[in-house]
Design a protein around this nucleic acid. Sequence first.
RNA 1: GCCAAUUUAGCUCAGUGGUAGAGCAGCUCACUCGUAAUGAGCAGGUCGCCGGUUCAAGUCCGGCAAUUGGCUCCA
Length: 637
Amino acid sequence: MNIIFPDGTVKEFPLHSTGKDIALSISEGLARNALGIIVNDVPYDLSRTIDRDAAIRILTWNDDEGKQIFWHSTAHLMAEALEALYPGVKFGIGPSIEAGFYYDVDLPEGIKISVEDLPAIEQKMKELVKADSMFMRREITWEDAMAFFKEKGDEYKLELLEGLKESEITFYTQGNFTDLCRGTHVPSTGALKYPKLLSVAGAYWRGDSSRKQLTRIYGIAFPKKDQLEEFITLREEAEKRDHRRIGKELELFMISPMIGGGLPIWLPNGTIVRRTLENFLRNEQVKRGYQEVITPHIGNLQLYRTSGHYPYYADSQFAPITVDDEEYLLKPMNCPHHHQIYASKPRSYRDLPVRLAEFGTVYRYEQSGELNGLSRVRGFTQDDAHIYCTDDQLRNEIKQVIEITQKVFSTFGMDVSTRLSFRDDNADKYGGDLSLWERAQKEIQDVADEMGLEYYIGLGEAAFYGPKIDFIVRDAIGRKWQLGTVQVDYVMPERFQLEYTGADNAKHRPVIIHRAPFGSMERFLSILIEHYAGNFPFWIAPIQLSILPISEEQHEYARELTVMFESMGYRVKTDLRNEKISRKVAESEQKKIPYAIVIGKREQEMRQVSVREHGVGNIGSKSLEEIQQVFASLMID
RNA sequence: GCCAAUUUAGCUCAGUGGUAGAGCAGCUCACUCGUAAUGAGCAGGUCGCCGGUUCAAGUCCGGCAAUUGGCUCCA
């Protein structure tokens, strides 16, 4: 048979050769490192025979598919260890994930696993690695498979099998452990040299909160020791960037149980950072014809009945407040308020687009287990705006809001992925006319294409009133969060009976764009803190420069410089304590202040400053004019 | 909300049933100093909250709360 390699070369192999044979024909090293083989786009075990001509690709650790095979095999390895240590354990599913794997297990009555038990399981896994058992694939009839798991009493596998009646069923066995599994697996457990179990969590069977909660164990594994060590180091580094930790160290924000979980308090330093970002966006919006408005924190419940948010989202709102027989809601979103502003006077097509912007604080009842630092909170401020425009203007307006969103992310150098969030087939989830939806989705995708955005489509991710473009970023430990969003809405204009008079003197419905480049100030700040690891650029830093006199003789010069920089609008901290200069420098560095201005006898006499850049070190002496120029160049206008 | 863990001084953390500890921060004193932490002293606690077991509880048991890692949900 002919085997076609990725580079296009064709080689003749005997019928029923295996992936291993093919790898060996190239080199022994490759055969040793190979984890699997892609045969005509289907992943095969290396030991599986190939029975006809095929295009192949050998997978190693350097391929993502190779890593998936490696981690999925490690999930089986862990399962074998669990079965040895906890006889009677039942298994749900155990897939590989982006970084590692997990297995959901149902432990025998009365047995619980916590992180403290992980080392023992890990130890057992290492023993099984040494045993170097082959992963053996076996095709089996559905009936035999059912019989096997009935005998074992594993109702989860039986349920999975119910869904596989029409498919080919395969079992994999390594050592004493047999699992229902599609594959693919590494040749033997000996390859899975450096496993590491990471955490334990509860996970509902099949993701359904009405069903039993299983124990999920997360882990990862590497072929080489230094890779595992590097992984552990990276995790430790990431923990140091955690915004909750840096937020405390730099006194940016706090959360007080006395005020309430998920209701963050902005401390003076954090307020500076947040206001600086708000002013940055405010300026950009003024340049683009936005008008800023302010609306109250609560609104009549009737407003949210009209919008359709209540009772649809009643579960995730704070309960209504009753006053004078009227019910009010802490506002879960700003849009209905803005719609009232639009509707407050007759609008002409000549007035459109109307762009109403507000840093509007909203309150949502998030489940207690979901709260997380600044990332997931119950009270947060959206950099919200609603653009009311004609159908003809829609395209340009979408373009402009994408552009302002990109401006935000590029200013901070953040990596974002872009998702077009469209509707799925479940019509109940959405409001409004299907044809309008299709038009809006097409409009969004066309603009995205036109602007050359790299995106993926998320079916079923749309809001109930329309499709969205969502901008998604990762935090320090790799979790994904949605930040900016752009949403097209044909439903609310209808519900609120919004109108404008057209050139034809007839009434028309505007279309609304909801947009928030930062998304939520709280969440954006959480990501920004981790992005910079607290080392904010000069224009954002809560304290921009410290002035550090070497001895008391320079205190007067220090005060003079303080007044000078403060009058120029810079945020200055002057350290007149009776401490050694190295101590003052150390503390300035720890507070991540971008510049330390050191002044001693020499600087005072020559009316200069010695400049130390945070994270860089001493960059030499400068005249007052020079340092002013440096600072001016670091500000964003 | 569910599963698991955690909660001790302002911060980071020791403390496995017998008189609550350390480092840093704070305060006082001395040192007047050239680019990442000068030294000495002092002060600081309802051991998350409520209840139980015990001669005795920070420690064991139960409940509650908050936080953390996940699950579910997310306009």
